[in-house]
């Protein structure tokens, strides 16, 4: 995994979170983000996000982190 590639993915999902912060409560926002990632991201991008989240996902926006955790639980 390239660091810059991962940085870009974190930046992307955080941007999705920030732009949809008014979509509802934290759970609703996370659902929206997870749906967006599920619909538009490639398999490998989702895998990278999953691995990053499992390692702590430190740079993720809280709503993005919740979304990533939802995606992980769906995949499990």
């Amino acid at each position: 995994m390239s660091q810059s590639e991962m940085d870009r993915l974190v930046q992307m999902i955080n941007q999705i979170a920030i732009n949809n912060i008014s979509a509802g409560d934290e759970n609703a926002v996370a659902e929206m983000i997870a749906g967006h990632v599920q619909k538009f991201w490639s398999r490998r991008m989702k895998q990278m996000l999953g691995e990053y989240t499992e390692q702590g996902g430190e740079e993720l926006h809280p709503a993005a982190k919740l979304a990533a955790e939802k995606l992980l639980s769906q995949a499990a």
């Binding site: 995994m1 390239s2 810059s4 590639e5 870009r8 490639s42 490998r44 991008m45």
Partner: peptide, 9 residues
Amino acid sequence: PNMFDAAIA
């Protein structure tokens, strides 16, 4: 843009 990132990686 993801293709570019993945190419560099």
